[in-house]
Nucleic acid binder design. Sequence first.
DNA 1: TTTTTATGAATGAAGG
DNA 2: CCTTCATTCATAAAAA
Lengths: 230, 230
Amino acid sequence: MMEWFDNKQQQEQQLQVQMEGLYQRGVGGVLNAGVMTDEQTAMLQKQISVYATICEQLVEMHKHFSTKPHLAGMRFANPYYDPLVASGGGHKISAARQRWSPTLAQLKILEESYEQVRGTPGKQRIKEITTQLTEHGQITETNVYNWFQNRRARAKRKESLQIANTCQSEMEAETKSPQDEVKTVEDSTSRSENMFLSCHDNMDLDQLCKMDLPETLCPFGLLEQGDFLG
Amino acid sequence: MMEWFDNKQQQEQQLQVQMEGLYQRGVGGVLNAGVMTDEQTAMLQKQISVYATICEQLVEMHKHFSTKPHLAGMRFANPYYDPLVASGGGHKISAARQRWSPTLAQLKILEESYEQVRGTPGKQRIKEITTQLTEHGQITETNVYNWFQNRRARAKRKESLQIANTCQSEMEAETKSPQDEVKTVEDSTSRSENMFLSCHDNMDLDQLCKMDLPETLCPFGLLEQGDFLG
DNA sequence: TTTTTATGAATGAAGG
DNA sequence: CCTTCATTCATAAAAA
């Protein structure tokens, strides 16, 4: 793992050096009658190939997500997400997306409603509550629906966790039931596990490479699948 | 901010690895050219700029992508189907995921099929699609069936909510309670639609073009917005 | 800051 | 078909 990183840095340096000659000629926007060595040319080819390959993936992803109806329709519902509008300033996209969060007044009503109808929220009931909560802030039926879903699910989970813990306490440190272990570490494990897996996800390119794409982007051809493994 | 940088470096590492692979393989064709004309060099610079710019976007996109195994492909979430692991022999990482999740290629096909047949796919059609999708990853007919069921149901629900929500937003635009300040950001425009946005929206290519990124990848600098057309 | 927690939201699957 | 549940993802808020 570490030697791989060092190797990477070494290559980066090498790449940097090779680029310098080119860069000097290219500064200022006007090209002098410079001559590139074979090495430099090869380096450029490699770089373009790499870029092209990754770009092909990006194009596919973008195409794919653009064809999602619910996403496509959403884009123009919010001016901030409209490319034509958003291009005005150097805004950050991340700042724009903000998930709903109940106000204190809303939360109070929600909790009361949850106590009343312990079981099913009911579709009509959702509408009622939503209408009521609208007076205390922005809210949608989806928000209410999700809130009840999560509220019930997490109450249930907490309860089962409680039982599991008491059982475990009674048994002391004798034998740990596999069930307890699963439930205890469930949430905390998921994140780190995903982080670990994400490293592999970076190299999950074969699926994307299978998709047919125009070859106009790169004159040197695209990378083969085996090339990613080194 | 910091996590973005880390992710960026991670992506760079991946890039280097890919380049290394290419380097070892060697690039045929133009390698022995020797001298390039200014026109060719300019073309190369332009091309690299284009690729680098898009790749920078990919880096940003990766931040959202890498933590979603179900989008990147389930085979890495399930070691059994990972070629790298499976071919390596008895090398288990952890308990495999129990729930099916479509790979990116599968999703693409599914969405296309969904667009084609708006109604119920039919048992025979399901079989066809399943067979087709098998080439892109582990999948069963039940998975396909469920996917279509959910896809249809949620599209329907979202549509109805969409209408109700826009009407609600219009009515709320005039009477804004001070409680809303908690949720509102710098833009005064009503954006209750944000609640419906998924993380996929961050991957919008148009949006990613707006982001400012370091110039480490490309020695010729990144393209401006208008440069994509030329 | 960085890490942890709480929670809104997305989604595969099951029940009716 | 529709609803509901269980799990997971992602992020805002809180803690360290």
